[in-house]
């Protein structure tokens, strides 16, 4: 946990009040974003995202599996987040379990849609190989390398980048076998199918400090928050998920205000992320 004296806390609160934060940012400004793709060669897709002092690595691993009986026409996606003790000493051992679970659940809500798979950011029916028999299981893992606030936004951005980097091997199914037998599949080493990541949302967290709210809070600023609302918005400006943290209550009108701000900010962030992804892919191709 960050240690701050009364004087420093006062200074941070004053900065947010006066719309000039400790590093000179305005209330609705992000820190510097840097994106790298293909950092883990063994994974199908991976990314490293740095947002100021926060650093995240995500990997996407695809495995062939069996679809569930309830949804024979859909693949499966699971998201796990782990916080490395390098980020903070308190994450050592079981110390990070609570935070990791909280982040995982928030991301699952925002990206995986409902129980039936409807409204998911990733089109689950595109993961099917043979209906009822074979499908792709996607394992999305996030690792927090260093933590300086705003983990959820950074994780969501990193997952978006990793998914855009992901290539699923092309599968050839031999249809000779009888219908109740396991079909034989031949996984190609050369041909890969790219994902459609245009519907993957970004998450914008608005942290309320005093009377105002800020985006991309550092851990010092987060220690001063009364409540935080995370809004996940997709490319069309639609809200895909909403979570609130912190004990203090919020007036409904404030929440509506926050949502409209998040919507506005998300479109800027999305285009920034897109250009960073394009730059990172161009660099990886070199």
């Amino acid at each position: 946990m960050v240690a701050l004296s009364e004087g420093e806390k006062h200074f941070i609160r004053g900065g947010i009040e006066q719309d000039i934060r400790t590093d000179g940012r305005r209330r609705l400004q992000f820190r510097a974003l840097s994106v790298e793709t293909g950092v883990i060669p063994q994974a199908n897709g991976s990314a490293r995202v740095r947002l100021g002092g926060t650093e995240i690595i995500t990997s996407v691993k695809a495995e062939l599996g069996k679809p569930s009986i309830l949804h024979p026409d859909q693949g499966k996606v699971s998201i796990f987040v782990d916080c490395s003790p390098t980020a903070e000493p308190m994450f050592e051992g079981r110390g990070s379990e609570e935070l990791s679970a909280e982040l995982s659940v928030a991301l699952q809500r925002c990206l995986l849609g409902g129980k039936s798979g409807a409204g998911a950011a990733i089109d689950l029916s595109s993961l099917i190989v043979v209906e009822g028999k074979v499908c792709w299981d996607l394992y999305i893992d996030g690792l927090v390398i260093s933590s300086d606030g705003n983990l959820l936004d950074a994780l969501a951005a990193a997952i978006k980048v990793a998914l855009s980097d992901t290539g699923i091997p092309k599968v050839n199914v031999s249809l000779s076998a009888a219908s109740d037998e396991e079909p034989e599949v031949d996984v190609s080493d050369e041909e890969f199918l790219q994902f459609d990541t245009s519907s993957v949302p970004v998450i914008i967290t608005l942290t309320k400090v005093g009377r105002h709210y800020i985006i991309d809070a550092t851990s010092e600023e987060e220690s001063q928050m009364s409540s935080a609302v995370s809004v996940s918005v997709n490319r069309h400006g639609q809200i895909c998920g909403l979570t609130k943290r912190g004990g203090a209550g919020l007036d409904p009108s404030v929440i509506f205000d926050m949502i409209s701000v998040a919507k506005h900010v998300s479109q800027q962030f999305m285009s920034l992320l897109d250009s960073e992804i394009a730059a990172a892919e161009a660099e990886a191709a070199e």
């Binding site: 009364e6 004053g14 900065g15 000039i20």
Partner: peptide, 25 residues
């Protein structure tokens, strides 16, 4: 300090704060 925290908080003047942030950066 104790008094001011209950009252409207007397923050650092904006001009000074800008200089502080600029020097810090």
């Amino acid at each position: 300090q104790q008094k001011s925290s209950t009252e409207a908080e007397n923050f650092t003047p904006l001009e000074t704060r800008k200089h502080i942030c600029r020097l810090a950066n």
